[in-house]
Computed example of a mutant assay.
Amino acid sequence: MHYEGNMIRPPSEANSILLQATVGCSHNKCTFCAAYKGERFKIKSDDIIMEDIAFAAQYCRRQDRLFLCDGDALIIPQKRLVKFLTEIKRQLPWVTRVGTYANHKSLSMKSLDELKELRELGLKIAYMGLETGDDQTLKHVRKGCDSEKMIAMGKKCREAGIQLSITVLVGLAGRERSQEHAIATGKVLSAIDPEYVGALSLMIVPGTELYTEYEAGDFPILEPDEVLTELGTMIANTNLTNGLFHANHASNYLPIRAKMPEDKEKTLALINKALDGKVALKPEWMRAL
């Protein structure tokens, strides 16, 4: 396989074939993210991608899922993406699911019919970083869109029959807007109604603009109890018809895996127990990105 740069994939794609179709992130402006700093976004050549598909056909027969890396492979023009997915389907018939990252920009560039075409060719899940439903925070972290656009693009993805996994960041709004961020995020998640939600707790990375704010004293990091309070508010304001709300990433203080809506009240009770000191939290040294 031909891999370049700082390649990243979702935790749930740990056992997938990793096919790198793009390098970097097409947006790459978020103030909290250092994943692709210094990398210029590009789509890899057809020849390289086809070589890697052929390699996977020979050496990756035990893996039945494939993930298109990097930060936003969905932005590849439709004709080329159809070509790649068709070849994956032809050479890797045992692959049951193809996944990719998606953002508001790439989803807006695809029509509903184009997304449905990709779904028919095996693209069955997209991972979208919402981070927050609070418009003020979205603007502050330079996400590049507002909550209304996020809702529209999330709904379009779901209407196309592509499962949606949405990431949110607890602590991203700082202390002053913690509750506004939590409530607004819950409302946006409810409007989109994705199959999966993954909540991460903010960890500030050196070299990012948000880290510069933190060093200057302009951005306070939430204490563990504040993180839990914010997460509880977010879950309380999230209504999913049939989804999984995960907060079991290595960055989180309290591992949570809730089937919504049936586990909602039980999960809120668990958070309250943790706030009362009756449930142990992950120590700081064990947290990681």
Results as ranks from 00 to 15, higher is better:
249 H>V: 07
181 H>G: 05
69 C>M: 14
212 T>C: 05
275 L>C: 08
151 I>N: 03
230 E>N: 09
151 I>M: 08
79 K>C: 03
69 C>A: 15
164 L>V: 13
166 I>V: 15
38 G>N: 01
132 T>M: 10
227 V>M: 15
102 A>Y: 00
14 A>F: 06
217 G>C: 14
269 A>M: 02
134 D>N: 14
60 C>D: 11
84 F>W: 09
116 K>Y: 09
237 N>F: 07
255 P>R: 08
242 N>V: 11
195 E>V: 06
85 L>F: 03
155 K>N: 10
223 E>Y: 02
87 E>K: 09
191 A>Y: 12
56 A>S: 04
163 Q>T: 15
81 L>Y: 00
68 L>R: 00
29 K>L: 11
209 E>L: 13
7 M>D: 06
88 I>A: 03
273 K>F: 04
90 R>V: 01
2 H>C: 07
1 M>I: 08
289 L>D: 09
269 A>W: 06
241 T>H: 15
114 E>S: 12
155 K>C: 07
179 Q>V: 13
253 Y>P: 05
224 P>Y: 05
151 I>D: 01
85 L>I: 02
178 S>D: 04
159 E>C: 06
182 A>K: 10
33 C>F: 11
289 L>N: 12
35 A>V: 12
11 P>D: 13
109 M>I: 12
95 V>N: 01
211 Y>Q: 13
123 L>A: 10
31 T>K: 01
233 T>W: 10
6 N>Y: 11
147 S>N: 09
216 A>F: 02
150 M>A: 15
81 L>N: 01
